[in-house]
Structures are given as C-alpha cells and as structure tokens.
Design a protein around this nucleic acid. Structure first.
Lengths: 409, 409
DNA sequence: CTATTTACTTCAAGCCTTGAGTTATTACGC
DNA sequence: GCGTAATAACTCAAGGCTTGAAGTAAATAG
C-alpha cells in the first residue's frame, strides 16, 4: 500500500490482465484480447511475447473466421507450465494435491500422521508428501514445470502472513508452520503459504459459483457445518481474514445468549443447534453414537430423515431457525449477496432452506431486499484442497512475471 | 480491476504517496519524503514540483537542522487549496459542512427540510445549502479553491455507486439522489457521492482512532445505538458496503431468535435490548416518554443511572449481555481488531463494557485471543459529517492529479 | 576562507504504453 | 488467375514515468 510504483507494476498488472483473460475464456486471438482488456494491439503483442517467453501461453494454430482477412493466431494457456501444491493438514492425516494453471488436479495423495501433536514432525511429513508429489508429477523430457507455491490449509487462525496463530484441533499455538516446512524442504523450493482450510473451501466455492453463474458476487459467504465447522467470506474476490485470522467463523455465531453451552466456551453458538451431535440429541437419537463414529451417525440421521422419521425433521426445523438467525447476523455484518451452505447443511438443505426462507420472508415486507441468495455447495468434500490449489495459482495470475523464462523452448 | 494500467497510474500512486505523507506528518523536506516513501530523491523533486504546481503543497521556508550541510526546504500542505462539502440528510433537516484538506471545518450550516418526503425538493434544498456553503467559504482574492467533492450522507442503503437503494427513515426507494442533486446544482459543479451516514461515522471514528493510537487496525467496527442506529466496518482502510449496501448494520444483529419483535420485522435484534425505548422499559420507566421526547428520555435515564437508581443499571446489565452476543457475532463474521461503541452505548459504557468483558473472559480460556479491543467513540455527534468530509478528501489523496494546476501562482 | 557535508536538481537511460504506419494473410469479385 | 479489400499482427518513434549518476546549492566546521 505504501510502496512506490514504477513501470514494472504496470507491466505486472497488464500481464495479469491478459493471462487471466486467456485462462478464463480459452484460446483467443490478440485482437480479442485487445478488445477485452482495453489495451492497444501493440501492447498485446509485447505482452503476449513475454507470456510466450515464460511458457505460460503458446500459439495454437490459426482460426479462419470464415470472413476474409488474415486469420487469427490463437493464444492458448499452457496450463502445464505451472503447478501448485496444496496440503490439507487434518488432525490425524494429511491430504495433498497438485494442480496446473487450469485447475486440473494432476496428483492426489494422503498420509496418515505419525506424530499428530508435534509441529516439527508434522512439518517433516508435509515436506515428505510434497516431495512425493513433485516426484510423481515430474515427467522428464516434458516442459519445464514451475512450481508456483505450496499452500498449507490448516484448521486454525492464521495471522501475520502465514504464521499459524492457534489451532484448537491441532493443539497448536503460535506455530510458524511455513518456516518449519521450508526448513524441511530442500533449499530453493517454492514459496510456502499457510491459510485457513475453511477459508479455502469458501474460496473454491466462490469461484465454482462464479464460473457457473458467469458473474462473481461482490460479497460472498460460505458456511459449513459437517465434517469440520467453519466458513469464509470473500469480498471483491479477496478472502477476508479479519484482524486475527478468524473472520468467517460462522459456526460459532451466537444465536441465543442463553443457548446451550458450546465447546468453544460460549453459549448458543450455531453449532449447538446444527452440529450433528446437537441434531441427534434434538431428534431423540443417541448422541453417544456421534462420538464413536460420526460418519455412521450422519448416515443414520440421514436415513431416518429420508425415511420420514419425524425426529430428524423436527430437529432440522428447529435448527433452521437458528440458521436463519445466524444468516441474518452475517447479513447485518457483511451483507453478502450470496450464501453457500456446506457440509450436512447442504445435504439436508431441502429441510433447512424452506424454513430459513420463510423466516426471511416474514420480514422482507418491511426491510429492504437485503437477504442473500441461498444455495448449496458445488464442490463438497474437495472444496478445501481445490481452493488451496486455486489460491496458489493466484500467485501466477497476479504476477505472471514471477514465472521465469523458458531456457529452451 | 480489469482496466489496463499505464504510467499515469504510476504517477497517480506516487503523487498520492507523497501528498499523504506531507498531510499526515506535517511539513517535511524532500529528503525525508524520499526516505519515507522509498522513492528516489530525483522522483521526489518531480512529484513535489507537480504538487506545488497544482497548489496542493508549498515550500515553507528552510529548516537548518543544526548540523552542517545545505538546509532543508520544507514542503507544507496547502490545505486551503481544496475543499470538500458534505451534507447529512436527516428525516427532518439537513446539516452541511465544508472542510479543507487538513480536515479543518471551515463552515457549518443547517436547514430544516420543507418537504421531507419528496426526493426532488430535498435535492433542491441540498443544492441550496451547498450553494450557501460555497458562497460563504468563497474569499475573493484568496487562493483559488478547488471543490473536490460533495458527499451526501443518508440513513439508508446505498448501492450501485451512489444510488440510494432504500431508506426507511426517509421513506425512499431506489432514489438516485446524486443525479437529482447534480441536476439542481449549476452545471460543472463538483462530483457528487452518496454514502451511508453510519458508515461515514465509522470511517471518521476509524481515522480518529488511528491518528490517536498511531496505528490503523486492519479490521475495525463501529457500532452505534443512540440517536440513529447503525455502524460500519472498515477493512484495510476501506469502508465495507457489502452486496446491498447494508454491511455494518450491527443494530439489527439478532441476539436471540425468540427475542422481542423489532420494527424491522425481525425478532431479538440488538436494538430490542439496547435501544433507548427498550432500556426504558427494562428499567421500569415510562416508554411513552421516548416517543414524545427522546432527548428528554435519554437525559432522564442518564440522570437516574448516575444517581444510583437500580432500574437503569439493571437494564444496562441485561443489555450488556445482548451486546456481548452481538459483538461475538461481529467477531465471528468480520473479526475486527478494534470495536468502537457510539451513541448511548458510549455514554453508558462504564455500565456496559465491564459486563461485556466479563462475558468474553468466560470463554477466553478456551478460544484463542480473538476478542476485539473495545473503546468508545472519540467524535460523537459530529462523526458522520466529519467522516463524510474525510471521505470526500480521499478523492484528492487518492488522485492528487485530479486537482487542476493553478493558473496563477 | 576552504573543505566538508547535506539537500536538491539535472540529465541520460531504461521500461512501459500508445498511435501510426507496415507487413502478412486471407476472401471476394471479376 | 489476379487485383482489391479486409483483417491480424508487427515495427517503430514518441511520450510519460522512475532511476542512478553527476552536478549544483547552501549551510557549518576548522
């Protein structure tokens, strides 16, 4: 913000503009790029030359448009030129993935954590998984691949740019995971970022929704209760982290100050109404099952719900009121245009959303139409890692010049 | 976001950097500017020359630093070169003010609205007040004054850049106030912006706090219940408006889904616990007094509170629980580092804040230290117009080149 | 009075975008 | 088959910007 600008910033921005257009709209000619970006064709020539030089883009044949005139030379993204590695750090295991610039996942891997509590061994296992990923995706003889970034998605608050402040789930406090992983990787490896996992899921859902509808909402919220509780806020395409890396923790929005006690120490959090354990209790099912085997508990609840058992339906009906309240709070604070529900909120949205909308409708007559549009997640379980990968790719989309020139074409 | 950049953007940014530094740190020499901005001294020479040319800055004598060497030529903000006009539109009256670039208010004026409901007459009366302001501040013979912007602060949601979507208080729906005022002003007048009034108060409090503490919080929230209910969210120095211009409406955060009915059509909004009428009712005072004379009601409540009457204290004690819940919701969504209370929340903060903090402390042992720092407003009643003026000045600080060169020195 | 130190300015160089003019490559009309 | 029009892309000088080096200005210390 307070650094001076020079012509390299201009170049960075315009390269990004061109690269983004090619990535988003598929192969296109320089003329189209000029029209779409507002740059003059001479500039496109220069920018395209640089992108071709760094291998991010390639000329992919001609497109005779039927009409007369010189045919267009199409510029195509060389997605394989860049890859991003993401690792999702869970309490008991790691999940890793690699994708190229197009977002195509080229590798997936998992690893059960040997010493979950201890940050240093975890960092070493992360580094090991990353090495495995890089070896698996290295194809000798193929184009040189530039690894843009390693993104570590953790369930915890991340502050001060990539320092994990706290993670209850992992039992960590002020752990600089990025530094630990950097130390465990060979020198000269790619840059490392640490981000919140639910925020990445939100980021992924945001982009999935944007590409489905064709327009990106200015303010967007993702709220997940299910395997993992959390969410994220995206404003103008940027993940909002807040002052302590805790923005978007929608699961712990209090919906009643005299509500049930929550594990977080507060009372009446949304999860105390919509968490699976709470739902089971409200449905008259045995909540102990949840502790023993959450997945079976979920399946059991789901089966009974779909079978027409009134207990689960009643539980969701009550939960929907809490959800409506929480979503109202989100609207009052951040006013998203669109809210996406995830986890079992998405799975059981047929029972939840109508009640929520009814609640909204009750007041829409008086207040302005400021309710968010509700929908359910598009990516589900993979959202976190997809978002983390996408987040890593943003590095390149924001600054294409960070990719070095190809030494040999 | 998707427009190309060229060297004029570089110039804009660097001019802004220099002007901001001079404005924030008082008269300073080119060498200091070079050190502070990171620009090279040759660039500072050129940038300063442009700022001097447009009259935003002037050379103000030498500063012999005591040590040897050529003395520094100080550059000083010429605050009077630019002025900003702001009008706060209230249901029954207008309040206007003019300030210069330093934020010094050079004129204040009021006008009782003749036809409050009707947008066009209101726009004409706004234009009249603005004309009055411009005539009152015009000093023939003095430096040419550039009027950078007219900012209209309204109690309502503002979307699509300066179109008022809805204002319940004014009874307006989708009124393009900026266009109406532009039409009522002489051709070639300054640009007109429409903004939410509580957001501007938040903006003012944000800057007041930042200049008092020396550092600006990354995420900041202002919450006012008093004469006018509302607030605002400032992230990285930017007012957050949300998708429908409704971000920061903290007064209508629901704190209990089965709480009292609110005028907004919802139940359990924060104002149903901390609005003055609710407080009076909870204190066992006659709530009808509030309708008749809110100011007297407030004074009455205040007197009894300070006299040790247990009723008002009890009402605030209960309200504080609601406030703690609402602030928790704000933290979960936006995670501000700092929250400023305004209106009677500020006046009675001695009764509210300890209870709120006690509530926070009850869970701090378990969750990370993500609670916002609480404080009370620094500007009070004038915050809205001060914020609106400041917002107008941002036009110039963001783009000093928008100020034309002086025709005569 | 000179040397030194510090502040500021000047100027050529390097990037970047732009606009005009040039070249490349096709289809259409005859 | 050939000239012409049309479209795409490239080349190049010009202009704006920052920069680094060299030069000038103006004080103090000895």
């Amino acid at each position: 913000m307070d650094t001076p600008a020079d012509s390299s910033d201009v170049r960075r921005r315009n390269l990004a503009l061109v690269l983004r257009h090619i990535a988003a709209h598929g192969p296109c000619a320089r003329t189209e790029l000029a029209a779409a970006t507002g740059l003059v064709s001479a500039s496109i020539t220069a920018l395209a030359a640089e992108l071709i030089g760094s291998g991010l883009v390639r000329e992919a044949g001609l497109a005779s448009s039927g009409s007369r005139g010189r045919p267009r030379k199409l510029l195509e993204l060389r997605a394989g030129r860049v890859q991003t590695v993401a690792v999702e750090v869970m309490p008991d295991r790691l999940a890793g993935a690699v994708c190229d610039l197009s977002g195509t996942v080229t590798w997936r891997g998992e690893r059960v954590l040997a010493a979950p509590g201890d940050p240093r061994p975890v960092a070493e296992q992360i580094a090991g998984l990353v090495q495995e990923a890089l070896e698996a995706t290295a194809t000798p003889g193929r184009t040189q691949v530039h690894t843009a970034r390693l993104v570590l998605a953790v369930p915890g608050a991340v502050i001060e740019d990539d320092l994990i402040a706290d993670s209850i789930l992992l039992g960590w406090r002020r752990i600089d995971l990025a530094a630990l992983v950097r130390a465990a990787l060979p020198a000269g490896s790619c840059p490392v970022s640490v981000v919140n996992e639910a925020n990445m899921a939100a980021f992924a859902e945001y982009h999935a929704l944007a590409s489905r509808t064709g327009t990106a909402p200015r303010a967007f919220a993702y709220l997940r209760v299910g395997p993992g509780i959390g969410g994220g806020l995206v404003v103008d395409g940027q993940i909002q982290t807040g002052g302590h890396g805790m923005a978007g923790e929608f699961g712990h929005i209090p919906v009643a100050f005299d509500g049930p006690a929550c594990k977080c120490g507060d009372h009446g959090c949304l999860v105390t109404y919509l968490g699976l354990e709470a739902l089971m209790r409200a449905a008259g099912l045995d909540p102990d099952l949840h502790d023993q085997d959450p997945e079976r508990a979920r399946a059991d609840f789901d089966r009974r719900l779909r079978a027409g058992d009134p207990g689960p339906a009643r539980a969701l009906e009550a939960g929907a009121r809490a959800l409506a309240t929480a979503l109202t709070a989100v609207s009052r604070v951040a006013d998203p245009e669109q809210v996406v529900l995830g986890g079992h909120l998405a799975a059981w949205s047929d029972w939840l959303v109508p009640t929520v909308l009814r609640h909204f409708a009750g007041r829409r007559a008086i207040t302005p139409t400021d309710e968010p549009v509700l929908s359910t997640e598009l990516l589900g379980r993979h959202a976190t890692i997809v978002g983390a990968l996408r987040h890593g790719c943003e590095t390149v989309f924001n600054d294409p010049a960070s990719v070095p020139s190809l030494t040999r074409p």
